[in-house]
Amino acid sequence: MDHASKQFEQFMKQREEVAQSYVNGDAEPLARISTLLNPATFFGPAGSYEQGARKVLATNEHAAAQFQKGSNSRFEIFHMAMSGDLAYWVGIQHAEVRMKDRAAAVSMSLRISELFRLEDGAWKLMHRHADAWAPADKE
């Protein structure tokens, strides 16, 4: 594995830690790894979408505020790769989350595709597609 691939692999460990913070109500780590440049897009689990870096950041901040401490998240990465200044991963994000409007924890499994762009030597999230995973989807 070359240096750039190792660097992206290390970034993906950070990305998973960022997801853990997010499901505990803290959007700041995600903001730090998100692009501030356009294009940027987010396709949300409920079928919505946002375009533009500022709108995506605002959407993420609003959504993170719905989560409470005591939540957990982990990635099941099917594959990931990088080439030049673009990288991606696809897989399932499994989470057990505590929502502000619910007493009991909620289990979530989302099919995830994320694209990253190298900006000034740092990987930045430029696109996230998340939708509900149903176990029947797995072959």
Rank of each mutant, 00 (worst) to 15 (best):
45 P>M: 13
47 G>F: 01
50 E>P: 04
51 Q>C: 11
52 G>A: 06
52 G>Q: 04
53 A>G: 04
55 K>M: 09
57 L>Y: 03
57 L>N: 03
58 A>Q: 13
58 A>F: 00
59 T>N: 12
59 T>G: 05
59 T>V: 03
60 N>K: 02
61 E>A: 08
62 H>V: 11
67 F>D: 02
67 F>N: 05
67 F>S: 02
68 Q>G: 00
68 Q>E: 10
69 K>Y: 07
70 G>P: 10
70 G>L: 00
70 G>F: 09
70 G>A: 04
71 S>Y: 00
72 N>Y: 12
73 S>V: 02
73 S>Q: 01
74 R>Y: 13
75 F>W: 11
77 I>S: 00
77 I>V: 15
78 F>P: 00
78 F>G: 10
80 M>H: 12
81 A>M: 12
81 A>W: 08
82 M>G: 01
82 M>S: 15
84 G>I: 03
85 D>T: 14
85 D>N: 15
87 A>Y: 04
87 A>D: 06
88 Y>N: 01
88 Y>T: 00
89 W>R: 05
89 W>Y: 15
90 V>F: 03
90 V>W: 03
91 G>Q: 02
91 G>C: 06
93 Q>P: 02
94 H>S: 13
94 H>Q: 09
96 E>R: 13
96 E>A: 04
96 E>S: 14
99 M>K: 10
101 D>T: 08
101 D>S: 10
101 D>C: 05
104 A>V: 06
104 A>S: 15
105 A>V: 05
108 M>S: 12
108 M>C: 05
109 S>W: 00
110 L>R: 04
110 L>W: 09
110 L>H: 08
113 S>D: 05
113 S>G: 05
113 S>C: 12
113 S>Y: 06
116 F>T: 03
117 R>P: 01
117 R>S: 02
117 R>C: 08
117 R>I: 08
118 L>C: 10
118 L>Y: 06
120 D>M: 12
121 G>N: 07
121 G>S: 02
123 W>E: 08
123 W>P: 01
124 K>I: 00
125 L>K: 05
126 M>K: 07
127 H>S: 11
127 H>Q: 11
